[in-house]
Amino acid sequence: MQGGTVQEKLSHYKEFATFLKQDVFIDVITPQLAKTYIAETNQQHGAKGANRRLQTLKACWNWHKGNIPNNPWSLVQPYPEEDYIKYVPNNEDVGKVLNIAESWEKEILLFLLSTGARIGELFNLKWIDVNFERSTIILWTRKRKGGNRQSRLMPMGGKMRNILESLSENKVDNAEFVFINSRTGQPYHKLQPCVRYMLKRLCQTAQVKEFGFHALRHFVATQLMSSQQVNIAEIQQLLGHQRTTTTDLYLRSLSSNISHLADIIDSMVIPNNK
Rank of each mutant, 00 (worst) to 15 (best):
P78K: 00
T184P: 12
I100H: 06
P78Q: 02
M160T: 08
Q207K: 14
A39K: 14
N70I: 13
S74A: 13
P78V: 03
E165H: 07
L98I: 13
I100A: 10
G46E: 15
L54Q: 07
R149T: 11
N131Q: 02
I38M: 10
F16D: 09
L199C: 02
A206E: 00
Q55Y: 08
E15C: 07
L239K: 00
C203Q: 03
D27N: 08
H64M: 15
K274M: 14
H218V: 01
T30G: 03
V6I: 14
T136W: 01
D173M: 06
N174A: 12
V208W: 04
L249F: 11
R149D: 12
P80T: 15
K190F: 15
N131T: 03
M156V: 01
V269N: 00
S135A: 12
S256N: 03
T36H: 10
F177Q: 08
E105V: 06
Q150D: 09
F219Y: 08
V88K: 09
L98Q: 15
P155S: 11
R201T: 10
Y79V: 09
I119L: 10
N131I: 03
H189Q: 13
A34R: 01
E102T: 11
S253T: 15
D93T: 11
K48I: 15
P193M: 01
H241I: 13
G95S: 08
I85A: 10
H260R: 03
Q32W: 06
G116P: 00
A262C: 05
E210T: 15
G120L: 04
A117M: 04
D266Y: 00
P69R: 04
P78Y: 01
K145P: 06
H218N: 01
I138E: 07
H218R: 01
L254Q: 05
M225L: 13
K143P: 02
D27P: 02
G4S: 13
F179K: 10
I119Q: 04
N148I: 13
T30W: 02
G185W: 08
Q228R: 11
N67E: 14
I180D: 13
I180G: 08
S74N: 05
P187V: 01
H218K: 01
T184S: 15
Q228E: 09
A101Q: 02
L199S: 03
G120F: 04
N91G: 05
P271H: 02
H12W: 04
I258M: 02
I265R: 00
Q55H: 11
A221R: 01
K143N: 09
A233T: 14
M1N: 07
N148G: 08
E210K: 08
I29N: 01
G158F: 02
Q55N: 12
E82A: 14
L54Y: 09
Q237M: 03
A117L: 06
A221S: 12
P187H: 01
